[in-house]
């Protein structure tokens, strides 16, 4: 429950504060969000299986987000930014689907 409250508080805080994203960060925002979603769904699945640990979540969230952004940044430097971005999104999307499927199995036993 505290986790949900924390998440909701973060969303509300973001909506109130309305921070402006600096220009150099804007291209990496979508990738960071997808990575964050991946970590969030993993945390939700862990919570349902009774193995949630906030330290693991913090590390996985930060590393997911940073690594995804760094991969895209490197890709931009090399010149394959959009392709690498696609690859990152594909992999993260598959993981999100796998976690959501496990969550569904857990919740509905179906």
């Amino acid at each position: 429950m505290i986790a949900v409250i924390g998440l909701a508080a973060g969303v509300v805080l973001g909506l109130i504060l309305h921070p402006d994203v600096p220009l150099w960060l804007q291209p990496y925002l979508p990738i960071a969000i997808v990575a964050a979603l991946d970590a969030l769904f993993g945390a939700l699945r862990a919570r349902l299986e009774g193995t949630f640990d906030e330290k693991v979540f913090a590390v996985s969230f930060v590393s997911n987000t940073v690594i995804a952004a760094v991969i895209v940044l490197l890709g931009d430097l090399i010149g394959v930014g959009s392709q690498l971005s696609t690859a990152v999104v594909v992999v993260l999307g598959i993981r999100i689907f796998a976690n959501v499927a496990a969550i569904r199995r857990k919740l509905f036993h179906a």
Partner: peptide, 16 residues
């Protein structure tokens, strides 16, 4: 700790 750790993703989602 849980509260704080979940605050950041929420903030990020809202910003995005």
């Amino acid at each position: 700790a849980t509260f704080v750790v979940l605050l950041v993703p929420g903030l990020l989602l809202a910003i995005a």
